[in-house]
Amino acid sequence: MVTALNNKLFKSPKILWEEKATAFLVANALPKISGAWKLMLLGDGSPTRHLQLLTNHETKIRLISMQIDPLFEKEGPREIDQLKEPLIRRQVWIRNQNKNLAWAESWWNSQQVSQNLKSKEEPIWKNLTQDRSELFREVDSISIVNSNWLEEEFCFEGPFWSRNYRFFRNKKPLTIIREVFNPLLETWLGPSGIQNFSNLYSSSSRPRNTSSII
């Protein structure tokens, strides 16, 4: 069992719009996303490694909290029922040059998390690849999200690109991950095109100033 940290979990960002990842792999009527952002959102590589390659600086994480999650059914992705309860939720900032370039949360079975996240202050991909065992990453959905606390930490006004994906080991889901990307990444990736999706959700969907801590 994982001992809860003193820090509290953030409430998951509000989803303004969401679409299955497979929709972006075929011709459709959705607005276009640039190639660089498609690779970041839909690619099966490690985002922490991608950010390190883009910036030429080491990418690290800052652990926010890691504890039993009583709200996984309410706030977790639809694939959350594929994990065996009880579930641990882990939230981190993905940082580079002392800036929060992304935020991520992940859900784990409480027994498997101890076996697979032995270095809790390291990125997930470093933990899972230490033993060179085979892993498979599947991106499930792309979404546009917003929250007041993300705007404060990113120092940008939302909304923000987000994605959900799963890691599989031995054909079984190991963890489910949600990532949200800072618009600062446009410095290296170019325009994200997120404004082209604004007509797909209501402007009234902007989150109000409510408590951000669970």
Rank of each mutant, 00 (worst) to 15 (best):
E153T: 03
A4S: 13
R78Q: 15
G193L: 04
S203H: 12
N199L: 14
I194K: 04
E79K: 13
A36H: 09
I88P: 03
I88L: 09
N6D: 11
Q67H: 09
I80A: 12
F197G: 04
N56Q: 13
P159T: 05
L42F: 04
I15C: 09
I213T: 06
V26S: 14
E151L: 04
S162W: 01
T129P: 02
I194P: 03
V139Q: 03
N96C: 14
W149N: 02
T55S: 13
W149T: 02
L150N: 01
L9H: 13
Q111F: 08
I80Q: 11
S133R: 15
S12M: 12
L150W: 05
P123M: 07
W93Q: 10
S202L: 08
P13I: 06
R137M: 10
R169F: 09
A4W: 06
H57Q: 15
Q195S: 15
N116C: 08
N127G: 05
F10T: 07
S203P: 11
N56M: 10
L5P: 01
L71D: 11
K60Q: 13
E85C: 07
T175C: 12
S147L: 04
R163E: 02
N127L: 05
W107R: 01
L39V: 06
N56P: 00
G190V: 03
W37T: 02
K172T: 12
S65K: 02
V180F: 03
Q111H: 08
T55M: 07
K84P: 08
R166P: 01
H57I: 12
P77L: 05
K32N: 12
N164S: 08
E105G: 03
Q111A: 08
M1H: 11
T22R: 14
E122C: 10
K99D: 07
V113G: 01
W37I: 01
N170D: 14
G158F: 02
N209Y: 07
N164E: 11
L25K: 15
D131W: 11
Y201E: 07
M1T: 14
M66N: 10
P70Q: 07
K38T: 00
M1N: 12
R208V: 13
E179M: 07
I213F: 06
I213W: 00
S212I: 09
S114T: 12
S204E: 10
E179A: 00
A27G: 09
L87E: 00
L5C: 05
S143M: 09
T175Q: 07
S192G: 03
R49G: 06
A102N: 04
E157A: 08
I144M: 02
R208Y: 10
I176S: 10
E79D: 14
R90F: 03
G193C: 03
T3P: 01
P173W: 05
I177G: 05
I15S: 13
A36Q: 14
Y201S: 08
A29D: 14
T175Y: 02
K171W: 12
M66F: 07
L9W: 09
N6G: 10
V180G: 01
R132S: 13
M1D: 12
I144C: 00
L54I: 04
S211T: 11
K118M: 10
L174H: 05
S141D: 11
R137I: 14
E75D: 13
D140S: 09
T3R: 10
P183V: 00
P31S: 05
S162H: 01
